[in-house]
């Protein structure tokens, strides 16, 4: 196949950036999208030009590194597929393909198609964990977990932290990502002791990082390569509401006489 690529090029965070056009010749249908870009980059290097910067690592759809918007759709818009797993058999000979990075205020662009997603790490640091130190954990079977809860928790835990949900959202909201972690832990008995402060702290950090508000448009769910469900957002909103109603748990314990 022969294709034409319109690719976003941007030297660094300060550069305004622009689209450039490149031919992608002799592409095979069995190539993955990133292998197609490898071919284009090889040619650019041979011509003494700078290759297109683009992130990937596992190329198996699990690390969450790859992050391209193809023809306006994060990950290319194929159901449950990251861009590293997208194959060229889904494109047509002669097609023009537009390739852009994630675009969101909280994800500054570092170069070309590569952006900075450390804001997602900061949200996890704010509370996306269970506070247990190494050692002293009880036997793994000491606390039975219903299979239904464990399975649902796993559905949420499957999030790869790619940020496509943010890129797809008109408001650049990270609600699907945050709700996935809140639900993963909130559905398990291990996550209960910190359930309220977790959701409060994570949402606060999300807001501070410059992500937008959720207006439940659902475009996040549509592009999520791990099919994380919108219902987790509803679940998180319930948790959040409940936590607000109960007030700041830290202040409660600080008051020292509540119970």
């Amino acid at each position: 196949m022969n294709l034409t690529l319109k690719v976003w090029r941007q030297k660094d965070a300060k550069d305004p950036g622009r689209f450039e056009t490149y031919p992608a010749a002799n592409i095979l249908p069995d190539m993955s999208f990133l292998e197609m870009l490898d071919v284009v980059n090889e040619r650019l290097i041979e011509e003494g030009r700078e290759p297109i910067a683009c992130d990937s690592d596992c190329r198996e759809g699990i690390c969450g590194t790859c992050s391209l918007v193809i023809d306006g759709r994060p990950h290319g818009g194929h159901h449950g597929t990251t861009v590293c797993q997208l194959h060229m058999r889904h494109f047509q000979d002669g097609q023009t393909i537009t390739i852009e990075p994630w675009r969101a205020r909280a994800f500054p662009i570092l170069r070309d198609l590569v952006c900075d997603r450390t804001a997602l790490d900061r949200i996890i640091q704010a509370g996306g964990f269970v506070s247990v130190n190494t050692g002293g954990a009880p036997d793994g079977n000491a606390l039975p977990v219903s299979k239904t809860d464990a399975d649902l928790s796993m559905d949420a835990a499957a999030c790869i932290g790619c940020g496509a949900c943010v890129a797809a959202c008109k408001n650049a909201s990270a609600m699907l990502f945050v709700s996935a972690k809140v639900s993963h832990l909130g559905l398990l008995p291990q996550g209960q002791p910190e359930r309220e402060r977790r959701v409060l702290n994570m949402v606060k950090t999300m807001d501070e990082a410059g992500f937008g508000n959720c207006t439940v448009l659902g475009s996040c769910e549509a592009v999520c390569p791990k099919e994380v469900s919108l219902s987790f957002i509803a679940r998180m909103n319930r948790d959040y509401g409940w936590a607000i109603l109960r007030g700041n748990p830290r202040r409660q314990t600080g008051a020292g006489g509540a119970g």
Binding site: V130, A137, G140, S146, H184
Partner: peptide
């Protein structure tokens, strides 16, 4: 064996049987 205990305590959603055990 300690590894499994530690990971369960962290909230790793291991596969479970209907009875709730790992």
């Amino acid at each position: 064996a300690n590894i499994i205990d530690q990971c369960v305590a962290q909230g790793v959603p291991f596969a479970r049987e209907y009875g709730g055990l790992l």
